[in-house]
């Protein structure tokens, strides 16, 4: 009958609305469910995943030595021209000329963190760091030279 269906419609409609209100009402009263992260405040306790890809770094050991031979494998692997390797020629003790790394130029502003350079590196000289706060005031600050001043290639790395 029309009237019965009409009243039924009204009541089932109201019931469905109340079910929704019960759900939001539950969250209104249960503050333990809150999942907000208060980011700058929890910076000390914030742990990034160990594989997180933040930026490319060139690893240096305590003797200020790195493992980069300047082979430009990473430069070739990079799809965005993010890395530019500048090489120089060192004179070895035997008096021979040897190709070595002069500057490892890294354009963070172009990097998409695709990880291809890390895979390409034959000596595992570079890796992804877990930093993520990269904002700076000047774009030029994003162009970095990764090898530290006066750093040398580690002995035995070919």
């Amino acid at each position: 009958m029309f009237i019965v269906k009409y009243i039924k419609d009204v009541f089932s409609g109201i019931k469905s609305l109340l079910v929704g209100m019960r759900r939001t009402g539950y969250y209104f009263t249960h503050h333990k469910e809150i999942i907000t992260e208060q980011y700058p405040d929890n910076r000390d306790t914030l742990v990034m995943a160990d594989r997180f890809k933040g930026e490319v770094v060139l690893l240096h050991d305590e003797n200020n030595e790195h493992a980069c031979t300047g082979c430009t494998a990473c430069e070739l692997a990079c799809p965005n021209a993010t890395i530019k390797i500048v090489t120089k020629f060192d004179i070895t003790p035997e008096g021979k000329k040897k190709k070595a790394l002069d500057k490892f130029v890294y354009h963070l502003e172009l990097c998409t963190m695709c990880n291809l350079c890390i895979i390409a590196c034959p000596t595992d000289a570079i890796k992804m760091a877990q930093t993520f706060e990269h904002s700076v005031y000047d774009r030029a600050e994003l162009t970095k030279i990764l090898n530290k001043p006066d750093s040398k290639i580690r002995e035995g790395v070919e």
Binding site: T24, G25, Y27, F28, H31, E33, I34, I35, T36, Q38
Partner: peptide
């Protein structure tokens, strides 16, 4: 505040 708590957020703080 009401919105935030219903949306499992903290709201203005």
């Amino acid at each position: 505040r009401v919105a935030a708590w219903m949306q499992i957020r903290l709201g203005p703080n």
